[in-house]
Amino acid sequence: MNLETLADTLGLKCKCCWEKLKSTEVKGGYAGDLLSDVMANSSAGDIWVTRQVHQNIVAVASLKDLAGIVVVQGASPDKETVDRASKEGVPIMVTDMAKFEVVGRIYRLLSEG
């Protein structure tokens, strides 16, 4: 599934890299707020669901070739985070939903194909 379809279906708001959504294939997902955990256990092409907002999340996503980041619970990524994400080509999306709900919905979407 491409990231645009996923974002539209869940009503996610995109903060940067709109132009990449359609061409970005989401292969799976990972959820977590501990950066070393995400570093070790996420896979390339995963959509990453997190509550973290500071700019280090961009480094993690870009180093691991993740599909993009979904920031949950109405948290708003720092301006520096969005700037860096635009520069490095990492799509960041936000939602008011809690992590549990976002992860459940993404999981269902991806398993239905």
Partner: peptide, 8 residues
């Protein structure tokens, strides 16, 4: 900042 899990 999301560090300090003791995993690095």
């Amino acid at each position: 900042l999301g560090f300090g899990a003791g995993m690095g």
